[in-house]
């Protein structure tokens, strides 16, 4: 009950904050004094390119995380892989303890510069929430439900597809939501290793001391993150199994 009320609140609060931010952005964009440097930084064509890069980075890294973390989570919750599960969750927790900045640099040293390196770094960083939620989601399924499925002659694959996964969907999606917000936020650091993104605008604003540019860049990043989060909230709402 609580969870559904919370997700309904998500569907209102997230767009409300987004709208507020958009209005602020509109006001700043139209009414602040812009010197030629700021105007050059905030060149619309530049912003559009960076926004697109930001979206692409977030999209691919999230997709990569989903493709890797969910099957991995399923695998380690099968009997006989308990040891592997703990080792893996521990290792990924360690990865998350490395600052995002450091992780991107480490990946740069390993793979060189470019968007692919950024996507891989983002995916590595946001793997844990999806993996952990997949494991938790599957493990919180009432054992008596699985037992009765087994007792009626469901094969392990049928039990997974018809019982365990559908019942863990809400938890898994909330993990994916966390991951997307991380990838969008961290994507602002992509410029460090030539991955582009709105970080370029923020960085230029910082270096050249142009607060308007900093605000516009940061607000756009926040709007992208909110948009992804809202999409996640919608998915949670509409993919939630009926009857729960």
């Amino acid at each position: 009950m609580n969870e559904s009320r919370a997700s309904r609140l998500d569907l209102i609060v997230t767009p409300a904050i987004g709208l507020l931010l958009a209005v602020l952005l509109f006001v700043v964009w139209n009414y602040s004094d812009m010197d030629p440097t700021t105007e050059r930084i905030l060149e619309p064509a530049n912003l559009a390119r960076q926004l697109q890069q930001q979206l692409i980075l977030a999209f691919w890294s999230t997709l990569l995380v989903i493709i890797v973390a969910i099957p991995l989570g399923i695998m380690v919750t099968r009997g006989g892989a308990r040891g592997l599960k703990n080792t893996m969750v521990g290792f990924l927790g360690l990865m998350q303890a490395i600052p995002a900045y450091g992780l991107i640099v480490l990946f740069f040293v390993w793979l060189g510069q470019g968007a692919t390196t950024v996507i891989l770094a983002l995916a590595a960083f946001s793997l844990l929430p999806v993996l952990r939620n997949t494991i938790v989601g599957i493990e919180q399924v009432d054992p008596s439900v699985i037992e009765s499925g087994k007792g009626m002659g469901m094969t392990p694959v049928q039990r997974l597809a018809r019982i365990e996964l559908p019942l863990s969907v809400p938890v898994i999606i909330s993990g994916i939501r966390t991951a997307t917000v991380i990838t969008v936020g961290m994507g602002a650091l992509a410029f460090l290793i030539g991955g582009g993104g709105l970080g370029e605008t923020i960085n230029a604003g910082l270096k050249l001391n142009r607060p308007t540019a900093i605000f516009v860049g940061a607000a756009l990043v926040a709007l992208v993150a909110l948009a992804f989060d809202f999409a996640g909230a919608l998915a949670q709402r509409y993919l939630h199994p009926k009857g729960l």
Binding site: D142, S144, V145, I146, E147, S148, G149, G151, M152, R162, I163, P166, L167, P241, K242, G243, L244
Partner: peptide, 14 residues
Amino acid sequence: GYVIQQIGLFPHRT
């Protein structure tokens, strides 16, 4: 047929 104490109905199925 198999009936257990906790019944174990599938909560996401009618």
